[in-house]
């Protein structure tokens, strides 16, 4: 049980820190949320490529995979698997194959919730 508590604490600290860093950028610079998210996913791919993100995932679990850098990690891991299995074509298909579940979920839930719930159009 103690070990599980430690897992939660590690996820909390790493995940919280990744969000806090983004908050600093939002407050200190004029970066819009869209730019922050693009930066995070790209940095996630790059850090995975140079081998720095995998250790963070091993250490913090969801603390590293749930923030959007983790989306980049999923894309990069998918590409690694794709290249190993299918060569150069795998470089093309691997990323989105790895991230397919999340993307399809966001698109479909977005669609269904938009049908069910009434939006609040901004004036």
């Amino acid at each position: 049980m103690n070990e599980f508590l430690l897992t939660l604490i590690k996820a909390f600290i790493v995940g919280g820190a990744l969000c806090a860093i983004a908050q600093i950028f939002i407050d200190k610079t004029a970066l819009t949320p869209a730019r922050i998210l693009v930066a995070y996913v790209t940095v996630g791919v790059i850090l995975t490529a140079v081998g720095l993100y995998e250790p963070l995932v091993k250490f913090a679990g969801c603390g590293a995979t749930v923030p959007l850098t983790g989306f980049g990690y999923t894309l990069a891991k998918g590409v690694e698997k794709g290249v190993r299995q299918n060569g150069l074509i795998g470089a093309l298909t691997g990323g989105l194959t790895g991230a397919a579940g999340g993307i399809a979920a966001a698109i479909s839930f977005g669609y269904f919730f938009a049908v069910i719930f009434k939006g609040r159009p901004k004036n």
């Binding site: 969000c19 949320p33 998210l37 923030p67 999340g102 609040r120 159009p121």
Partner: peptide
């Protein structure tokens, strides 16, 4: 929460679902 809900995958989902709802018209 600011970046606290933006940076996790929840922010990505919210950006899609909120804009989908708000642009129904």
């Amino acid at each position: 929460a600011g970046a606290g809900t933006l940076v996790p995958i929840t922010g990505f989902a919210n950006s899609m679902i909120a804009t989908a709802m708000d642009t129904k018209s």
